[in-house]
Design a binder for these strands. Sequence first.
RNA 1: GCGAGGGUGGCGGAAUUGGUAGACGCCCAGGACUUAAAAUCCUGUGGGAGUAAUCCCGUGCGGGUUCGAUUCCCGCCCCUCGCACCA
Length: 833
Amino acid sequence: MPDYDPQTIETKWQKSWEEEKSFKVEADPAKPKYYLLEMFPYPSGRIHMGHVRNYTIGDALARFKWMQGFNVLHPIGWDSFGMPAENAAIQNKSHPNTWTLANIKTMTEQIKRLGLSYDWDREIATCEPKYYRWNQWCFLKFLERGLVYRKNSEVNWCESCNTVLANEQVIDGLCWRCDNEVITKLQEGWFFKITDYADRLLEGCKDLEAGWPEQVLTMQTNWIGKSYGAEVDFQIKDSNEAIKVFTTRPDTLYGATFMVLAPEHPLTLSLSRGTEQASAIDAFIKEVKSQDKIARTSEGGEKLGVFTGAYAVNPLNGETIPVWTANFVLMDYGTGAIMSVPAHDHRDFEFAKKYDLPIRIVILPPDGNTNADDLREAMTDPGPMTQSGEFDGLAGDEAKQKVCEHLQSKNIGKATVQFRLRDWGVSRQRYWGTPVPIIFCEQCGTVPVPYEDLPVKLPLDAQLGDKGQSPLKSLDSFINVPCPKCKAPAKRETDTLDTFICSSWYFDRFTSPDEENAPFSKDANRYWMAVDQYIGGIEHAILHLLYSRFFHHVFRDMGLVETREPFAHLLTQGMVIKDGAKMSKSKGNVVDPDHIIGRYGADTARLFILFAAPPTKQLEWSDQGVEGSFRFLKRVWRLFDETATILREAPGDLDTGGDLPKELKELRRHIHTAIKRVTEDIDKRMQFNTAIAAIMEFVNHLYAFREWWTSQKESSADGQALFKESVETLILLLSPFAPHIAEEMWEQMGHSQPTHHTPWPEYNEEFLKADEIEIVIQVNGKVRQKLSVPAGIDEDSLKAQSLEDPRIREWTDGKEIKKVIVVPRKLVNIVVK
RNA sequence: GCGAGGGUGGCGGAAUUGGUAGACGCCCAGGACUUAAAAUCCUGUGGGAGUAAUCCCGUGCGGGUUCGAUUCCCGCCCCUCGCACCA
């Protein structure tokens, strides 16, 4: 009678799965497909509990889908370009490639010890030329489509990482990777025109409502930030020039009492020339430029401004209004200039009060008071226009529309939209990434590397500078190339591409990882995409998930993919925490997955992680909880092991002809209840914790049944058969969560087909019904009695029986019975007074 | 400030359509087995009163709807996350 020995069992089955290539799949139009994907890991060194949780959730689902008969694509790969490799290499005086490959090796071993159902034949690593050549291909194709451009601009710069960051990679003014403060810097670089797709990315969110968490969609929607409004031209006094502004409140145009330009706005400087404000403007521009961009753009920052010396004309009321410049107006949103309506905008109000500028109420307040002197704060609510000439009385969208029509008819403005989204800066001044496939030629200018010359290989013999400066800039063998057009000596671009490009289409590559003539095969893509279920951390809610959607939309325009969106369903798993905090080395609360697997086995680790919390919630690590899961698996093993003989001799089928004794009927009901609960918890609710709870309850019932059964003098063949059915069901229900122990028991039961190729058990509604059910009897909504009655009892008898019950009589005697509510199969509520 | 999600025993969490609040597990206590321990099994376990039967209270707080509310509505408090001078 061997004890449960996870190490032996797990080694045995992992070896078997690997040798048999148990989870290898091919596209097969005859079978329904299911593409399950976890966000592929960065090979940082060793796996942590967050990885374990991510992959365990995915694996449970994948195995379940296999058993449901789907052709399951469940791949894994490595997001293996990026800065940590460089930093580690500098520290260890090694090479990023060496470091990365060693980490992949270590982490592969660790992942394999978890018993995950991956198709390892599809493994990819983005740092391999056969992968990143297609990043370059995408770059060139996007360039052809006008979606890539180069510009000199103020960019986010991380001093510690020595590189540019995209807007999405700046979190609270800090670098997303190293938490260092981000500064702005003028830098030339490549941009992806993601703004061209702003509207479609926004609309796509609607397609995703059924499958994505609302939170993520809200974040994406806010990030794209579409605003409806109007562009309006304000004529500059005594000049032919106009200042173009964007406003979301054209209905407040009559209240525009001054204007504000961004300090960087070209008119700020030019308007002030020749006025007595010239020197003040010069000083102000200088001051704002030295001001930290983050501080400047954060709410509550002090609003500072200076009069430019110039005036403009309000196009609707003809009033002359002063033009100011101020730090809170940004050059890169809208037109870089605003009309200020202090009565109806918080910022304008604050600014007007500070610099004593006029305020005029043009939206009627609820109390009807239009005296601006009484205004304590800006009134930003919508309302009827007032003091606005012919528009008085119009309100809301109608008012805005009418004003826009008027502007348009006079050719001084029009309805328009603005987006908060900025183009995606993809140039990185670092080494360990995809080289940008561009050559600079003095004669021909910027020349794309011809497709047939791809990949532009990243030279692996380069030595990193000790501050992370890219060695490419000084590597003559890399830089010096003939111009593809004129063959004259030219120079390669030395920037590399943002690693987020690698992860923006890897899921497409998984459909045909060995494709040599394209980033992926269209046929394979058509069969496998979209990803049916994507699983990963919420930290990618904007970054990776937005970029991937952008790529997918472009691919669709290129005719490479057919689905509208790449990820049909998204699950954002919660964090793993311990002692109330995220696991981290600095806090010393890290639990090493290897340690847990070594001590209890992968099945215990998996079971605990799935049982401790629903997948989307954060999970508090508990060593005692792990003990509990281990104890449960031992309990399952014992149940199986101690009855192995009985199970082996059991007849295959139940002799259903005879009426079963009560205990057997009960057992059968427990089997089918367990199947129903586990199936629905996985499939409909994705709530593994309750699925496992249902299995635990089932096991408790099996123990109770076994005790009753072994106490019987004679054991019936039906009992034996049903017990066998119970244990086999248990094994199958358990197998997505704890696959090794399940597989071992399954084999010992005499099955040659592995569990993941065995159909998922089905329940029979008929067997879910009990003969006797418990009905709760309430008096005035309080539970006073519980009755066991036949399941088929009719309402009237139930009602009568309830009213006659002695204990209920104690509450109802001498009182007037106002009403009796009967909820079939559940309760009776007697209302008395 | 705006948006989203939360608040249930000592702890993690259940309650799926308005119908027995606390499933399942952890912790803890008691018992069985054992020379003993470990392992295992059994019992108990929201709070209060009571020998007990049983009763009262109880899902952040205050109200409401309802025969009945963790669930729906109104107001408030607190926590987490995201956005945040975006005109």
